[in-house]
Computed example of a mutant assay.
Amino acid sequence: MDFDHLPDTADWWAADAVICALGTTQRAAGASGSAAAFRQVDHGYAMAVARLARTHGTPAFILNDVQLEDAVRIGALWLSPVSAVDLSDVEAVFDDLRGYSVRVDGESRRRGAAKEFATALPPGCGLQDKHAFVAKRDGLPVGLLDIIDGYPGQGVAFIGLLAVNESLHGAGIGRQLYAEAERYVRDRLGAHTIRLAVVEANPVLGFWQRMGFAQTGESKPYGGGTVASRAILLEKALGSASD
């Protein structure tokens, strides 16, 4: 099939669900292996399929993307895509984020936090825009990373969560996770800006400033469980990989 010229009138677009397993690697994306060719296969073609399915009334689109060639090694860490089918690793990390949960939710373990991490989306975004990962060290889950592509606009990626097991704070895992998030956003998603929000009740503003983020001057009321606070918006412009 020619994915550059998909048959937009084919009756088989109308289905109960469309499952897209299309993907490639940087090396295999054309003779040049360019970032643009890579993004076209892994993002552009999948989006084209999703739009045609929606146009023909198909109610569900599932993107089965191996992401990061199934898993990527970052020093002693392995970063793997999260499956909503098996949330046991995500649950294990949230079990070690009780201090964070108290600060942002007012309770030590919010029910449904793992499922929300794997599935929650901001307005106007679909599952194809969500990139959720679990970090492992020596086979054990030690952190979480959630990225939303194209939010709040084209060329922008939003970090919904970057969290490290509280028992491992100070080991440099957060820095490693952020470095990989930035590489992924720039090279895989083709974004030029990263945004995120910090809940004022959660004292991590200094970490993000050390990562190169600056406050935008925007803030929004935040309410999580019994906690009433503010969400402070931060932003970082990205250079090229050679910068």
Rank of each mutant, 00 (worst) to 15 (best):
Q40V: 02
R73P: 02
R210P: 06
L63W: 08
T24G: 13
G239I: 01
L140K: 14
A163R: 10
P7G: 03
R183F: 05
D42R: 10
G172R: 12
G170N: 05
A214D: 14
H192A: 15
L162I: 15
G170Y: 12
T216R: 08
E166M: 04
E116C: 04
H56F: 03
A113V: 06
W12M: 07
R210K: 15
A71F: 02
D96V: 03
G124P: 11
I74S: 08
D138W: 01
F133H: 10
G150K: 09
S242A: 10
L68E: 03
A179T: 13
D149K: 02
T24M: 11
A163S: 14
L68Y: 00
H5Y: 00
L233N: 05
I74C: 13
A113G: 00
V66M: 01
E218Q: 12
A114E: 10
P81Y: 00
A29D: 09
A84G: 12
N202A: 04
A181G: 13
Q154T: 13
A36T: 15
D86K: 09
A113S: 10
P7Q: 05
A171G: 02
W13L: 06
L97I: 02
D4M: 05
G44E: 01
R51C: 04
S229D: 01
A92T: 14
R111T: 13
G124D: 11
I148N: 04
A157E: 05
E200N: 06
Q176M: 12
S167M: 06
G99C: 04
A113L: 07
N202T: 01
I232K: 08
